[in-house]
């Protein structure tokens, strides 16, 4: 189903969900839950957006049913820890590559995915100051290194 233009701000979270469908369904579920909540705030009135949100909700309900024996889904506090650990793992991998002077597409993607997962953490409550700082840093690093590689510069 094509994404209504109003939902552009959540397209990367939805893509991350798709990429984790088999790799880590818990990550996929919470990315979609975040997209659902954010999507409802962006536009829940226009017919194309409502149709999209209803489909997304169907998908979330069926994922929850399929993973009914998974504590990361049935208990949000466990889910919170799962997403936070995953985001930190992504961040540390990219940060380690960065500090070792290894700049490549994979580390850019890890920085960016870490920042997206920190957005997702907001479904569990207000983000900690540490998470906000990590998100800002990861997003900036991803953009900066991407631009350097594109223009042939060596990142500092």
């Amino acid at each position: 189903m094509s994404l209504p233009p109003q939902f552009k701000p959540i397209q990367h979270h939805l893509r991350t969900a798709q990429e984790h469908e088999t790799r880590d369904p818990v990550v996929a579920y919470y990315c979609r839950l975040y997209a659902m909540q954010a999507g409802m705030k962006l536009d829940s009135k226009s017919p194309e957006c409502r149709k999209f949100l209803v489909k997304l909700m169907d998908q979330l309900e069926s994922m929850k049913k399929e993973m009914s024996d998974n504590e990361s889904i049935t208990q949000e506090v466990v889910g919170n820890a799962h997403i936070e650990n995953y985001a930190i793992k992504m961040f540390l991998y990219a940060d380690n590559e960065d500090r070792s002077g290894r700049f490549h597409k994979n580390m850019i993607k890890s920085f960016y995915t870490a920042s997206l997962l920190m957005d997702v953490l907001s479904v569990f409550g207000e983000l900690s100051e540490e998470n906000i700082q990590h998100r800002k840093y990861a997003r900036w690093k991803a953009t900066y290194i991407h631009n350097c590689l594109k223009s042939g510069e060596t990142p500092e």
């Binding site: 839950l33 909540q37 409802m40 829940s44 009135k45 949100l53 909700m57 309900e61 949000e76």
Partner: peptide, 27 residues
């Protein structure tokens, strides 16, 4: 007809909100 349209839209929105709350065990 405008108000009918608005009523339908908000009813559907409520349904989504309710399904979301149920999904998150908040009902």
């Amino acid at each position: 007809t405008g108000s009918v349209g608005t009523t339908v839209a908000s009813a559907e929105q409520d349904e989504l909100s309710q399904r979301l709350a149920k999904l998150r065990d908040q009902l």
